[in-house]
Amino acid sequence: MHARLWAQRQRVPEGGATARAIHYSLERWGALMRYLEEGAVPIDNNWVENQICPIALGRKNWLFAGSLRAGQRAAVVMSLLHSARLNGHGPHAYMNDVLERLPTLPGSCISDLLPHRWTPI
C-alpha cells in the first residue's frame, strides 16, 4: 500500500485534494504501522483531547485572573480538581469534603487531603 500511495502521489497534481490526502497518509505511515503492529495502541487520541478540551477552551478567560498570584491560585485549584477526577473522585464531593475538614485538620495531616491519598468520610 505504501508503494502504491507513493506512486500515485507522483502522478497527482500538486496542491489538489487527492495530493493532500495521499501526503497526509504518507506522513503518518509510521504511526499507522505502529498501530497495526501493536494491538493495544488506540487508533485515535480522542480521550486525551477530551481531557484537555476544558483547559483549551478556558485558556483565554484565564488571562484575566486579576493578578499573577490569582492566576497561580486558580492553577492550583484546577490542578487539584483535575487530579481528583483522575483519581476517580467527584470534584464537587472532593472539594466540599476538603473545605469542611481543612480548618480543623492539624498541619501535619494536610497531605492526607491530596487527591491521591484522600478518602471520603
Results as ranks from 00 to 15, higher is better:
residue 102 L to G: 02
residue 98 V to L: 06
residue 76 V to I: 02
residue 55 I to L: 13
residue 65 A to E: 09
residue 29 W to N: 05
residue 48 V to P: 03
residue 22 I to A: 04
residue 40 A to E: 03
residue 30 G to E: 01
residue 111 S to Y: 13
residue 88 G to E: 13
residue 101 R to E: 08
residue 84 A to I: 12
residue 11 R to V: 09
residue 97 D to L: 05
residue 96 N to V: 03
residue 36 L to I: 02
residue 69 R to S: 02
residue 21 A to E: 06
residue 67 S to F: 06
residue 76 V to E: 15
residue 40 A to T: 10
residue 75 A to F: 12
residue 25 S to K: 10
residue 107 G to Y: 01
residue 64 F to H: 07
residue 102 L to H: 04
residue 48 V to A: 13
residue 87 N to R: 14
residue 33 M to P: 04
residue 45 N to Q: 12
residue 39 G to C: 07
residue 11 R to L: 04
residue 36 L to W: 03
residue 93 A to F: 09
residue 18 T to W: 02
residue 24 Y to H: 15
residue 25 S to C: 10
residue 37 E to L: 07
residue 54 P to I: 01
residue 96 N to R: 14
residue 3 A to L: 07
residue 98 V to Y: 09
residue 115 P to Q: 12
residue 23 H to N: 15
residue 49 E to G: 01
residue 66 G to T: 05
residue 60 K to R: 12
residue 18 T to A: 07
residue 18 T to D: 06
residue 58 G to F: 08
residue 3 A to C: 06
residue 35 Y to T: 00
residue 12 V to G: 03
residue 114 L to M: 13
residue 11 R to E: 13
residue 63 L to Q: 08
residue 89 H to K: 15
residue 19 A to M: 05
residue 88 G to F: 07
residue 51 Q to N: 14
residue 68 L to P: 02
residue 22 I to H: 02
residue 66 G to Y: 09
residue 93 A to V: 14
residue 58 G to E: 02
residue 33 M to Q: 15
residue 113 L to Q: 13
residue 99 L to Y: 12
residue 76 V to M: 12
residue 73 R to H: 05
residue 114 L to K: 11
residue 41 V to E: 02
residue 69 R to Q: 11
residue 95 M to K: 10
residue 39 G to V: 13
residue 58 G to S: 13
residue 65 A to Y: 04
residue 28 R to I: 00
residue 111 S to V: 10
residue 102 L to A: 05
residue 21 A to T: 11
residue 3 A to H: 09
residue 70 A to G: 12
residue 53 C to D: 05
residue 43 I to C: 01
residue 75 A to L: 08
residue 40 A to V: 09
residue 117 R to S: 01
residue 119 T to N: 13
residue 38 E to I: 08
residue 75 A to T: 11
residue 21 A to S: 14
residue 115 P to L: 12
residue 47 W to C: 09
residue 85 R to L: 15
residue 7 A to E: 12
residue 12 V to W: 01
residue 77 V to P: 10
residue 93 A to Q: 15
residue 103 P to A: 03
residue 41 V to Y: 05
residue 7 A to C: 10
residue 89 H to I: 11
residue 7 A to D: 12
residue 35 Y to K: 01
residue 2 H to K: 10
residue 62 W to N: 03
residue 40 A to L: 03
residue 3 A to P: 06
residue 54 P to W: 08
residue 96 N to A: 02
residue 95 M to Q: 14
residue 87 N to V: 09
residue 72 Q to D: 14
residue 33 M to G: 05
residue 17 A to R: 14
residue 2 H to T: 00
residue 82 H to M: 12
residue 80 L to E: 12
residue 15 G to I: 03
residue 87 N to H: 15
residue 106 P to R: 00
residue 14 E to S: 05
residue 22 I to M: 05
residue 77 V to S: 03
residue 109 C to K: 13
residue 70 A to C: 08
residue 52 I to N: 08
residue 65 A to R: 04
residue 9 R to V: 14
residue 90 G to P: 10
residue 34 R to S: 05
residue 46 N to W: 04
residue 21 A to H: 12
residue 106 P to A: 00
residue 26 L to T: 07
residue 105 L to Y: 06
residue 69 R to N: 06
residue 67 S to L: 06
residue 112 D to L: 09
residue 120 P to A: 13
residue 55 I to P: 06
residue 52 I to E: 07
residue 47 W to Y: 11
residue 63 L to Y: 04
residue 59 R to K: 09
residue 119 T to I: 13
residue 99 L to W: 11
residue 108 S to K: 13
residue 26 L to R: 11
residue 114 L to T: 01
